[in-house]
Structure formats: structure tokens, C-alpha cells
Design a protein around this nucleic acid. Structure first.
Lengths: 200, 200, 200, 200
DNA sequence: AATGAATGAGATTTCATTCAT
DNA sequence: CATGAATGAAATCTCATTCAT
């Protein structure tokens, strides 16, 4: 029978609390890496008791999964935002998608690395990056039906493009390559269009 | 007075010992995953004392790195073996490379997953998959200089192709897709050739 | 993957180590009570790492059980030592047993309390105080067969005597009663003899 | 505009509430043990919010103490009820007391065990079983003054008898002994009378 | 070289208890 | 009065790693 508990106990809306924890964790993960960040660090940073952490997450791993899901959604949103306006021109849409994805991902590689370290390329449970691939697959499929390009296996092509661009961005960021954004964007566009057999 | 045979103290050539440990570890990693496999498991399986492990490896991570390097080398060898004969025809060489890579990787995804879990796409220290990418980069570079194809950024293209094919194989194996090897090979070939601007 | 461990690692014979821990724990239990003594306290006092504790005991509870068993054995020994010499006279032997038990128990009530707090009168698993009751039962049984006394249910009588004396000693020590040892011994002797129908 | 009935906020007389909680707790304690029963369990079973618990009890320990006191009172009442009629014959009164105590206690060992686990033989604060011992002490004292028996130390004798019978019942119930109630009663009677030097 | 007991950091879990609403 | 989110101390457990023998 443990002895007691003394100080405060402020109640916040659950979502807020949950986000506080996720944000604190993400910051620490990016700064010091996942492994080096203990649950104690996280709760301290979120100004929350350790028990509270386990009130919102089953484990450090589940927190990581939640961050992963959030990351995917945000990336997808950023792509949609950048893609929304473009209508009609399928080649243009695909190029825009690819560039938006590359840019969005490049902008958050560090977050991605922190969150997905120890996971890629097997998304923890198919719920994370996947939504992005699925979005691309849909785009390719629609374009295909509109006869904008000729691809045999839509799924594979989507996966290929997604993984290829992912790798490029990784490589660029890993090598701290001086590659300009412009150059990255151009290459990605070219490769995307070539992949669907629509050389520019 | 007959001398009792020395009970323990069996010494093996260091290389053998080291391999025993690596093999035992790899088997366990594949069976149960890296995280679930403790150094105790490994040493037990290798029939070695715990301390002995640290005589051959600085840490569990180093063991993982060694397995990773070995994996990369073996994959590269399998690609070379399948590619060696083809001369002259650059398109053919690239297609062969891509198919050999996909096939070789598909044949050992489980090993790859076990070994690179928690690492990809950031190779632990640039020593693993990289040799494969580098090999592809070299091929692309030679073909480019031979004017076999026109690509702007060789490095990026190599990384793109490598990552793209990697992802396809991952996806196929993850989804236990019924895709035939033939279909996988065809798609990979097409995408590889398209990526260098040489539609088939 | 936790980071590291640095300092020493002295090896002691397991029994010694185990005893170190038990002794340290017992001291703390007596001083501050079981509940107030954490495993951390114990390991600190025993100059041992926390992990080591769980190398020798499954839990704090198991440690308590081990202390309980040891207590019973020691009490029994002290009774045997005080009883050994007396031969022949059954009444005398019983009186000696009862007085030795009362005295031995009184001498270690604090230890008993610490160790059996939260247990009595249900010995954790039948292995502790019991050996003392069993010893008494045997004595009663032998005397009965020697027609030294007439008791109907030997087991119950043994249990009654054991529990009764136990309670007296508890009460005396709890009330910090000024009762002299002599008076306690006399009462216990009387009650023991009366219980077997051999009024003195 | 009809007023909506207040949804929660059902108030019960404090005593009722308190009893609800005690009863719910007792049931759980008996079913699963004190340690395994959390305050959450209790409040859930009593259909009360966790905070409400602490409105009626300072702590889980206090609840236990309250249950202990109630147990003692009920046991005492049952003894009184069974003893009331007997007048005059001191030996008969003592025998009746002892048998009533044994019977009453046997009928509720499980409750006793649940409630006093972790306490006996040191009543939490002298408020529990004690009233029963005190009652016996008074009986012995009166009989002594009436020269019904000759005992030196009344307190010790009372404690001895109480503890002895307690132990017998414990042992019987612990060993799931087939001892009939009749046999138990006879033995207890004999021992009680012998203890006061009045062999039957 | 080989051994395995010991280490200690950290994850996970559980709860009694507090307190803002 | 009642509520239940939050607290934080501790127990438990797991390992990678070290080091005396």
C-alpha cells in the first residue's frame, strides 16, 4: 500500500493532454533520439506525472505509433493543400503531387526519422505512411482510367514512386547534400513522369 | 593415474566462433525479431558464455551491423552473378540488374527485415545496403557516359531506383501478394528502363 | 536497448549473497516495518544492485517468506537446545518446551512481528511457524502414548497450546507489560500442564 | 416547461452510504483478498465515485479497521446471545462462552481472514478482536472472585484461551479438517475448563 | 580465452490518495 | 456532497554490458 500523493491535479480536456504529451515527446525524440528519451523525460517535459502517461498511452511504442499516424496525416494534408488547385492536366497533377511529397517530406525528415526509426519500411501496422501511398495509388488509378498514362500495375507503380522519392529525400538529407530544392524538385518531377511512361 | 579430460575450454578458430554467433543470432532474429532476442538467447543458441559474446562484438548493435554488412555483400554477389554475362547492351544490363536485385531481395526479405529493422532507410553507418546502391550508381554512370540513356543526376536516379524497387518488394512480401515472380520482374524491368528514359 | 553498466561485480557464494540480502532486509523490516521498507532500501543496505535482488528472490513477498521459514527454524532450534537434556519426565519436558517457546518467542517478537506482519495466523504457505507446532504435536503424541497425560485430540491440543502461548507473549510484549519473565514462565507452565490434564 | 430530473446527485443518508461501501468492500475482500481489491474495485462495486470513498474513510486501512471493529462486535453479540441464558454455573458459563466463540468464529473465518489478513495478531489499534478478549477476561474475573476456579493471572489466561481457541479454529478451517462441529466443541470445552484448573 | 554473477538504467505497471470542478 | 482526472511512489521486470576469476 503506497503511502500518498500530495500536489496538484489540474484537469485538461483529454485531447489537449494527449497532445501535450505527444508534442513533448516528439520534441525530445527529434532532439535526442527515441532510444535516448525515457518516459521520465517525456513526462517531465510535458509537465505530467508518469502515471498520467500510461493513462493516455499503453507504452512508449504506442506513443510512437500515434506520432507516426499523425505524421502521415499531416504529410498527406500538406500534399493535398499543394495539389488541390491543379485540375485536368494529369501530368501536371502527378508532378505536383511528387514535388509536394518530396518537399513536405524533406521539410520534416528529422521528425520522420525520429518517429519512424526502427520501423521503416514496415510501417508498424500499416496505418502510417500508407495513407500517403494509398493517395498516390488513387491518383495513378484515376489518371490511368483517364488514359493519361499507361501503367500496368498501379499499386506497384505507386509503391515504387513513393519509395523512390522517399529514398531520394533521405539520401539528400543524409548526405547533407547541397542539392538545391529546385534541382531536387526537377529530378523528382522527371522521375515521376518517366515512371508512368510520360517522358517530359 | 589417467588424466581427466579437460571439461570446458574448447577453443575454436576466432572466425568460426564469430560465425557461430552471427548465425545463431540471425536465426533467432528472423524467428522472433531483434528486440525479442536477448544476448542471453544468442549465447545460449551459440553454446557460448555470455562474456564470450563481448569478446567478438562490442555490442548487440555491432553484431547487427556485421549481419547487415554481410547481407549487403551477399546480395551484391548474387546480383553480380546474375549480371556478369551480359555485355554491351546497356538496357539489357540495367534490366538484368534490376531484376536480379528484386529477386535476390525478395528471396531474403525476412532476413533483411530482421537485420535492418530499426535502421532502414538510414543504414546504421553507411556500410550496408549502400554497397548495392553504389553498384547501381556505377552502372548508371557508365551507361550514361556510353550515352545509353540520359539522366541528369546519376546519384539520385540510382537512389530512386534502389529505393523504389526495395519498396515494391517490401510491399509484395508484406501483403503476401500473389504477384508472380514473372509479373514482379516485368514491372521492375519496365520501371527501371523508364526511370532512365529508355521506354521499352 | 539500455545504455551501459559501469562499476564492479564481485562474486560471492550464492548462499552468502542471499543471506546478506536477507539480513539487510530483516534489519530494515524490524526498524521501519515491512511496508515502509522498499526494495531499493534493501539493496542499498545490502550493497547490492537492484537487479541482484531479483536474481535471488522473485519478489519482496518471497523474501518475506524466506525470512519466515528461517525464523521458524531458528525458533525451533532454540527450543530444542533448551529441551534436549530433559529426559524421562514428560510433565517436565512439556513444561520445558512451553517455557522455551515462550522465552524464545519473547526474545524475538519484534523480528516475528516484522516478518509475519500481514501473514499470521495463515502462514504464507504452511512452511513457517508450522514446524514449531509440529514439534509440539510430536511431543504431545509421544507423551500420550507413554500414558503421561490424557488428551483426546493431539493435533488440536498442540495447536491450542501453541496459539495460546503465542497470544500471551504477544499480549505481554504489546502492552509492554511489566510482567517479569519469571511470572510469564510460571503462567505458561501452569497453562501447558493444565491443558494436558496434568495439573501441577 | 417541465424541469429535467437531476441526472446524478443522488444523496443517501451517510450511514447507508457508509454501509454500502463497507459491504461491497467486504464481499470483494472475501472473494479476492484485500491486497487484490483496489479502491477502484470497491467504489465500482458500491456504485460510488472514487472520491466519495475518501469522504467516508480516510484510507483503505481505516475501512479495514472499521470492518474489523464490526466483525468483533458481531462476534461478541453472537457469543452473548448464546451465553445469556446460562446463569449461576460458572463452569457451564465458561464452556458455553468457549463453544460459542469457537462456533461463531468458525462460521466466519473467511470474513475474519479477509478482514484481519495483515493484522493479526497485532490488532490494528487495539479496537478489534480485543473486545472479545476483554469480555472473556471479565467472565474469568467474575468467576475467580466467585471462587469458581483458581487462576493466577486472569489477563494472561483470557488471552491464552482466546488465542488458543482462535488457533484451533484456524487450523481446522485451514486444513479443511473433517472434524465435526461436535468434536470441535467438545475439545474446546475440555481445554477451556482445564485452563482454569477445573477438569471436567 | 572463456565464464557467468553482478550491475544499474529504464520500461512498465499498479494504486492509494488528492483536488479542481 | 459527489466526481474522476491526475498524481507519484513503489514494485516488478528486463537486459545490455562489465569484470573478477
Amino acid at each position: 500500500m503506497p503511502v500518498a500523493a500530495k500536489p496538484g491535479a489540474r484537469t485538461k480536456p483529454p485531447e489537449t493532454r494527449r497532445n501535450d504529451i505527444m508534442n513533448a515527446a516528439l520534441r525530445l525524440f527529434v532532439e535526442q533520439g527515441v532510444a535516448a528519451t525515457t518516459v521520465d523525460h517525456i513526462t517531465a517535459a510535458a509537465e505530467v506525472a508518469k502515471g498520467t502517461f500510461y493513462l493516455y498511452f499503453t507504452s512508449k511504442d504506442e506513443l510512437l505509433a500515434a506520432l507516426g499516424a499523425r505524421f502521415g496525416q499531416e504529410l498527406l494534408e500538406s500534399i493535398h493543400k499543394a495539389t488541390r488547385r491543379i485540375e485536368g492536366d494529369w501530368q501536371g497533377r502527378l508532378a505536383a503531387w511528387a514535388k509536394a511529397y518530396a518537399a513536405g517530406y524533406l521539410a520534416s525528415v528529422r521528425v520522420h526519422d525520429a518517429v519512424f526509426s526502427g520501423t521503416w519500411p514496415r510501417p508498424r501496422d500499416g496505418q502510417l505512411d500508407n495513407c500517403v501511398v494509398d493517395d498516390l495509388e488513387q491518383l495513378l488509378d484515376e489518371g490511368k482510367r483517364a488514359l493519361a498514362w499507361s501503367i500496368e500495375d498501379t499499386r506497384m507503380t505507386a509503391v515504387f514512386l513513393f519509395g523512390g522519392i522517399h529514398s531520394i529525400v533521405d539520401d539528400v538529407s543524409r548526405r547533407q547534400s547541397r542539392t538545391t530544392r529546385a534541382s531536387l524538385a526537377r529530378t523528382v518531377e522527371t522521375l515521376a513522369l518517366r515512371s508512368v511512361g510520360s517522358p517530359n
